[in-house]
Amino acid sequence: MEVVSVKDLTSTYEGKIIHDNISFDIEADEIFGILGGSGSGKSTLLRHLILLTKPDSGEIEVLGNNLHRISRKKAQELRQKWGVLFQFGALYSSLNVLENISLVLKEYTQIDETLIEEIARTKIAMVGLDDSVAFLNPSELSGGMKKRVALARALAMDPTLLFLDEPTSGLDPKGARMFDELLLELRAMLNLSVVVVTHDPFSIDRILDRFILLHDAKIRFDGTIEQFRSSNDIIVREFLESAHGK
């Protein structure tokens, strides 16, 4: 079953074509990568998928909802079923860590406060943070901790679909690898489907089940890492070699 399905998507930015008739599917329970060089439209594509911007044409279906014709109510429901991790965390700066994570639970459920706190603290532990961060403000956190808190916030409602925008960028190598392992562990335990925008070669090797490579507004490659390695396409080879610094 597909969780995301994109058909003939075209989008432009100030007259420049960003995506030219691209189509791809993302299956349930897989970690799916969106790859490409800087400015290849990875983030734009992600923004289309999470209902922040609309493409010029084409159909996008997320968890069975057609984003082009979605009603306001359906869209609200859909937003509760996914979690989004932004590149720099995008934690709400006026709320502390615990409040950042509990916010959606307080808004969308009638669970009592103590259970909400319990859930939020469980998520803090799941992303590998200590309880002592609970009352810190986002400005008191390091970059890596911010990302972890942001991941905990994205996981607050146990979403079925998780969108990650460059989750390991700006982390030290050890932190980045730990983040990858964490993601694999969470995927195994929470039945997540994950969509990742990344350039990190190690993450590509380690966590992605399948991915697409965007190049010149088209999808240059769509498949698994094994297929990717054996590809003879010149652009694919170039991307692969530069990613591994050879």
Partner: peptide, 11 residues
Amino acid sequence: IDTAGMLLIIT
């Protein structure tokens, strides 16, 4: 069942 449900049962 998800994390919240499990926690409700446990607590």
